[in-house]
Structures are given as C-alpha cells and as structure tokens.
Design a protein around this nucleic acid. Structure first.
Lengths: 132, 132, 132, 132
DNA sequence: GTGGTCTAGACCACC
DNA sequence: GTGGTCTAGACCACG
C-alpha cells in the first residue's frame, strides 16, 4: 500500500488518495476481503493529517467502494472492483477529452498534438491486467 | 474579442481569461500593436467584476505579454506572440503528459486509451494557422 | 517580524511588504522552513486590509520566494535566501545607478555628489551579516 | 531642446519633463530670455499628448521657473537658474539619501555599496559648469 | 485555523 | 477615458 502524494500538485491530497486507491483496486493491487490500512496508519505512512485520510475514506465509503467492519477497520465492498474500473475509465476519458478540446480551441495544430501523443504512447507497457 | 467564461468550471475566472487571451494571441486573433479591450469594457462584456479582469491583465503583464500605455490602455508586447505560442505548447503538452502518466499508473490498457484518442483526434480540423 | 509601513510614501503598501520581506530574508531575520505570519495575522499587526498582504504574498509566491503549505500557511522556499540576496543587490544597485546617472545628466558637479556620499556612507554600521 | 522621455519608466511623463527642463536650466543649456518651445511644438517633438506638456509647463509656472509672455509663449523667469540649481541639489541629494537609507535598512554590507559607488563615480566627467 | 477567489465600491494619477 | 491601489466583506476548499 504505497501511494505517491504530491502536496504541491494543485490536486487536493484527499482527492489524490481517493484516485490512487481506486486505481489500486481497479488493477488488482488490492484484493477483496483484505482490510485496508487504518486512517492513522496511512496518515503516518504519508506524513499527512489524519483528517485528510479520513476524508478520502469517507468519500470512498459514500461511493460504496469501502465499507466499515465494526471493530476491525475498513475493507473493499463486493462491487468495488467493477465500480473502480468504471470510474477509472470515466476519469481518464473525461480528462483526455478536456485537454484535447482545449488544444483544438487554442488553435493548436493537429500534427503538433500528434507528436506529443506518439512520444507519450510509446511509454505504455505491454499490458497484462489481472482479469479477475 | 469574445471569450467563453464558465464560472463553475473549477478554474478561476481570471485564469480562464489569461489562457484564452494567450490562445487568441498565439493563433493570431489578436494583432500586435492593437489595444486590447479595457479592463472595464471586458468586464462589462463578460458580466464580471473589473477587478477580476484586472487581475488577469496584471498576470499577463507580469509575464511580459501585455504592457500598459499610460492613459490609453493595454496592448500586446513585442514578443507576445512568441511567448504565447511557447506557453500554449507547454500547457497542452504538460497536461497531456500528466493524464497519460496517470492512465499508465492506473493500470489502464494501452488499447483502451488508444480508442479514446482515435475518437478525439478525428475532431481536429484541417489546420491553417496564421504563420505570422 | 515587524515591518515599517508608510501608507503615504507613494510606494504601494503591498510593494513595501514585498521589499521588506525580501530584505528580512536576505539578512537572515527570517529562517528557512519557518512559517511566516499568516495573511490575517500580518494584516492585523500592520492594521491594513488582508487583501493587501495577500497580494504581497502572492507576488513573492510568483517569484518562488514563498510557497503555500496547504491548510497551514506559507513558508520560505528552499532557494529563498539566495533569490532575496540577488534581488536586494539588483534593487539597490539599479537605484543607485539611476540616481547617479540622473546626477550626471543634470550637469551636477562630481565634488558635490561626493560630499553627499561621504556624509551618508558614514552612517553605515560596521557590518556583521549572518553568512548562512 | 532635446529631452529623453521614457514612457515606461514608472515616473510620470510630465514629471520627467519638469525635471529635465530644470536640469537644462541649471546647467545653462537654456539661456535666460530665450522663449522655450510651445506646448504643441514640444508635444510634437516628443510624440506625446499636448496636455502632458501643458501640465509640466503649468507646474514650472507655479514654481516661478517659467512665465508667460502674452502672445509669444513662455520663457525662463529671472530667478530660474538659482531656483533650478537649488531644486537639482535637493532632488539628487534626497534620492541618494533615500536609496542609501534603504541599503542600510536592508542589511546590505558597506563594502558592497562602496563597490557600486566606485564604479559609478568613475563615469563622472571632469567638471566644467557654466558659472553664469 | 489557513490561503484563494470574487464582488463591490472607492480614490488616485495620468493622458 | 485609462490602469493602479486599497478597503470591506463574502464564500470556498483544505487540513
């Protein structure tokens, strides 16, 4: 359970936690049934305010991705993987659309955008995703 | 000089003005030497507070894209077009890199990203940019 | 953290704050890593509007001398001391050059300028600057 | 009668005209009795708004350095030279004091200031001022 | 608590 | 008319 938090990225820390947890669930790094780290434990690991972690967990609970297990902690729900994969697709897709829309509206040339895309897409690994 | 402002986009209004003015300069919709709309005039057009426009103009001034002509208004600087094109490329490029990095880190499949890109890139017009 | 503000000096208040903070950092009165006084706190101390302080802080942020720590406040950046010392030297040097250029162009006699300088330079203290 | 105007110097244009006219009178480049250029003529030469020149002339009139000659234009008053030399000394002296005070308060080292002064003072010409 | 943003309205110098 | 500055007060997200 290692998350990469960048406090100066402009994106709220709790939002970074939410996204990365969703991603971890989507690609199978977190297994169903496992307990996730407690608020205090994760806050300690990331050296941030426990309130911030709690806010992220609360949001994931609202979205029925996490659920509380009384007296033990929190774990993934039954439908978590499916929901997270959907959310991941939506998030990435909408952000790609946004930036490409902005590129068009800015009058940027198609070819210049293609150059960037070619360079970036080459960085993608051959894909093997856990099909569970 | 028509800008599209969305007060509920999450991006600060002054920041939207800054970007769109840069884009307008980059693709030649604003010509060198022209006076740009006055703070009060643009504020009236966009139905927002003059201070918000002034803040955008001040930032563009800090970036040496606009300069004041005392008692008359503001105009593009000599190097504005070059700077704006550079900024546009940097902005779009860095945002594309960000979202594609996030896509990779999320474990998303290369082919799924490609599907989105193909669909979006078809929306690009055949390009004819003012080469001045 | 005591600043001397003169609202009737002709120099904008926010600009006075910017300069004096730079000077305080340059000569070691503010230490790296320390949180600086909050916008509201400094505004209260100086009996001015918080927006005026915020504007000064924003400019220092633009110049990478301050950075925000979300939810906590603002602090000096890593390179703040170096930048402030450079800025101080540039500011004083350029202003000295300006006035001496004006003196020459005005046809003033070298000896008359020297008289003023001798008198003023005697007011300088024996110097001991924090070398950190 | 050639003045050097810098519209982007931060100092108001009319103020630049006032100063440079005073300096021209102080060092004898303008002779008593001569008519000075008309508002419109000087405005044309400097490519600025006639109102701006008029404002400068009005201030010099208020300070009894210029006077109107009905139907002809404006000329230096009898005490103009004396007044301009006094003003020149006051102006340069007070600006030097200001910047050196700021240098001291900023914690700058005496020796660093001296370096700048040495370099600048060498630019002064051997002095021959019209003693009239 | 913190900073960030926006609005409203005022006064100023300048042209 | 123009931009520059300052004040006052509001709302927001974040920790």
């Amino acid at each position: 359970m290692i998350l990469q938090i960048d406090p100066s990225s402009g994106i709220a820390i709790y939002e970074q936690i939410v996204r990365q947890l969703k991603f971890a669930i989507a690609n199978g790094r977190l297994r169903q049934g496992e307990l996730i780290p407690s608020v205090r434990e994760l806050a300690r690991q990331l050296a941030i305010n426990p309130n911030t972690v709690a806010r992220a967990y609360r949001q994931l609970q609202d979205e029925q991705i996490l659920e509380t297990v009384r007296g033990q902690g929190m774990r993934m729900t039954k439908g978590a993987v499916r929901r997270c994969r959907t959310d991941r697709a939506k998030l990435i897709s909408s952000r790609l659309k946004e930036v490409l829309l902005e590129a068009r509206q800015s009058g940027m040339q198609r070819q210049d955008v293609c150059k960037i895309l070619d360079r970036e897409m080459n960085k993608f690994p051959e894909s093997v995703e856990d099909p569970s």
